[in-house]
Computed example of a mutant assay.
Amino acid sequence: MTETISSIRSLLKQIDDIFDVRLLKWRADSRIGVQTALKSWDKHYAKLRQQEEAFQGRFSFERHYWDQGVTYIAGIDEVGRGPLAGPVIAAAVILPSDFHHIDVIDSKQLSAKKREMLYHIIIEQAISIGVGIVDAATIDDINIYQAAKLAMTKAVKDLAPEPEVLLIDAMSLDIPITQESLIKGDALSNSIGAASIIAKVTRDRLMTEYSVMYPGYGFANNAGYGTKEHLDGLKKRGITPIHRQSFQPVHDQL
Rank of each mutant, 00 (worst) to 15 (best):
E3K: 12
S6F: 02
I15H: 00
D17W: 02
F19S: 13
K25G: 04
R27K: 14
S30R: 13
R31L: 06
I32K: 14
T36H: 14
K43P: 02
K43F: 05
K47M: 12
Q50L: 15
E53M: 11
Q56M: 11
F61K: 06
H64L: 08
Q68I: 00
G80K: 09
G82T: 08
G86I: 09
I94V: 14
L95I: 10
H101D: 14
K108A: 03
K113T: 15
L118V: 04
Y119V: 07
I123T: 12
E124C: 07
Q125W: 03
D135G: 14
A137Q: 12
T138E: 15
Y145M: 14
A148P: 06
K149C: 13
K154M: 13
A155S: 13
V156K: 02
V156S: 04
D158R: 08
D158E: 11
P161K: 11
P163R: 00
I168N: 01
A170R: 00
I177F: 05
T178D: 06
K184W: 04
L188Y: 02
A195L: 05
A199C: 09
V201I: 10
R203P: 11
M207K: 07
G226Y: 11
H230T: 05
D232M: 05
R237E: 07
T240P: 02
I242Q: 11
Q245A: 10
V250L: 05
D252I: 01
D252C: 10
D252A: 14
